Amino acid sequence: MPKEKPNYFDLVYQVVREIPTGRATSYGAIAHYLGLKSGARMVGYAMNAAHALPDVPAHRVVNRLGMLTGRHHFSTPTAMQEALESEGVKIENDQIKDFDKVFWDPETELSI
């Protein structure tokens, strides 16, 4: 019987659901944690598809510099920033301020 391939989007969503309120992580950190061969791009594809899923806090996933690169996939151009700011995250020029303090690393925080 052939081995069933994992659904990478579901694995990404499992990780994203664990990001605490007021914290954020990067596409690359999730990819690294999951050992995804196609890396951050695959996580980005998953996040683009996640906006219809109310239990996946896609607004908490940004690029490696803390830039809100996925903002154009939200219902309005400012929705991602507004969601982060409502959780206490400071944004300046489409970038998380003090990203190193807000950054949540699944490698050290999870054991999925």
Rank of each mutant, 00 (worst) to 15 (best):
R60Y: 06
H32A: 12
V89S: 04
E109Y: 00
H72C: 06
A52M: 09
S111N: 13
R41C: 09
Y13C: 08
S38A: 13
A79H: 04
S26Y: 04
L110V: 10
D94T: 09
G44Q: 15
P54I: 05
D55W: 04
A58R: 10
A40L: 03
L65Y: 09
A52W: 06
K5S: 14
M1Q: 08
S75D: 14
D10V: 13
H72D: 13
K37Y: 14
H51A: 05
H72P: 00
P20H: 05
F74N: 06
V62G: 03
G22Y: 03
G28Q: 15
S111P: 04
T76R: 12
K97Q: 14
K5D: 12
S26R: 02
D94H: 15
F74A: 04
Q95R: 12
L11E: 10
G39R: 01
A52L: 11
R17C: 10
E82A: 13
R23P: 05
I91Q: 08
M1Y: 06
M47C: 08
K3I: 14
E85G: 03
E4Q: 15
S75G: 14
G70Q: 10
S111G: 15
A58Q: 11
V16C: 07
A52V: 13
V89D: 04
A58G: 13
L84G: 00
A79N: 07
A52Q: 11
Q81L: 05
G66H: 08
Q95G: 04
P54N: 11
D94K: 11
N93F: 08
G35I: 14
S38P: 07
D94A: 14
K3Q: 14
D105W: 08
D100F: 12
P77D: 06
Y13H: 05
K101H: 14
S26G: 04
T78F: 03
G28A: 15
S86W: 04
V61G: 02
M47L: 11
Q81Y: 03
K97A: 12
H73P: 00
E92L: 06
F99E: 08
I96S: 05
Q14P: 00
E82S: 11
N48Y: 06
H32V: 12
P106T: 06
L36E: 03
L36D: 03
F103N: 09
D10G: 04
M67R: 07
S111M: 12
H32P: 02
T108P: 00
F103W: 09
G70H: 08
D98N: 14
R71N: 10
K97M: 10
A83C: 00
R64E: 11
A29G: 07
A83L: 08
Y27S: 02
W104L: 02
Y45T: 12
F74M: 03
M80K: 01
P20Y: 02
E85V: 08
T69N: 09
W104D: 05
L68G: 01
T76N: 07
V12E: 09
V61N: 01
Y45C: 02
M1S: 10
K97Y: 10
G66E: 08
